[in-house]
């Protein structure tokens, strides 16, 4: 709930402030610290990195394959082939 609240606050600020704010740099910095903290949490419970990587690659392959199949069938059905 707190996460959604912060997201909503961000949207609200974006709607109120007329001037375009440059947020790419702070966003990247936040992301780097976040990934570090995430790795540290995984490291503190002694997660097996290689096993996690293999599981991740299998999951990614499944997700990509089924996404492609569904998208292909949809494009064929609506005749939107570019």
């Amino acid at each position: 709930m707190i996460l959604l609240l912060f997201f909503a606050i961000g949207v609200l600020i974006g709607l109120i402030v007329k001037k375009e704010l440059k947020i790419e740099r702070p966003l990247n910095l936040t992301l780097i610290v976040l990934v570090f903290a995430m790795g540290a949490q995984a490291g503190s419970i002694k997660v097996d990195g290689m096993r996690s990587l293999v599981i991740s690659l299998l999951l990614m392959t499944g997700a990509v394959m089924f996404s492609m199949i569904f998208a292909y069938l949809f494009i064929k059905a609506v005749g939107g082939n570019g």
């Binding site: 996460l3 961000g10 974006g14 947020i23 966003l27 936040t30």
Partner: peptide, 14 residues
């Protein structure tokens, strides 16, 4: 960091 990032993502989308 997660709170901050979601705030920035919301801002970017808006």
């Amino acid at each position: 960091m997660l709170y901050l990032m979601l705030l920035l993502i919301g801002l970017e989308m808006a």
